[in-house]
C-alpha cells in the first residue's frame, strides 16, 4: 500500500520518502511508575481510524512532522511541522 504525504516544507510526496516514527503519545515522566513506563513502551494503541503520528522526511527536508492519518484508509488528514506551529 502506498499513499502520499503532504510535507509542510516540501509539498505532496510519496510515502516512500518518509520514515514512520511512532504514535504521538506523551512520554511518562521520570517519576512515573514502572507499570506506566511499560505500558507506554510495549502497549501501542494501534487502533483502526484516526491516529496522530510522527513521520520523518528522510529523503527530503529531514524534518519531523506530525500527521493525522486514518490507519484504515491511509488518508492523511493533516500534517504539521511542530517548529512552524511553535513560531
Amino acid at each position: 500500500m502506498s499513499f502520499n504525504i503532504s510535507c509542510p516544507t516540501c509539498g505532496d510526496r510519496q510515502v516512500e520518502e518518509f520514515q514512520y516514527g511512532s504514535e504521538q503519545e506523551p512520554r511518562p515522566s521520570h517519576e512515573s511508575s514502572d507499570t506506566e513506563w511499560n505500558l507506554y513502551l510495549y502497549s501501542k494503541n494501534n487502533t483502526p481510524g484516526k491516529e496522530s503520528e510522527w513521520w520523518y522526511h528522510q529523503y527530503g527536508c529531514k524534518r519531523w512532522i506530525l500527521l493525522i492519518r486514518d490507519t484504515s484508509s491511509n488518508q492523511v488528514q493533516s500534517s504539521i511541522d511542530p517548529f512552524m506551529e511553535a513560531n
Binding site: 512520554r27 510522527w54 520523518y56 528522510q58 519531523w64 511542530p82 517548529f83 506551529e85
Partner: peptide, 11 residues
C-alpha cells in the same frame, strides 16, 4: 533523525 525527534518533541 533521533536528535531531531527529541528537538521536535520539545520545540
Amino acid at each position: 533523525s533521533w536528535f531531531k525527534w527529541w528537538l521536535a518533541s520539545d520545540t
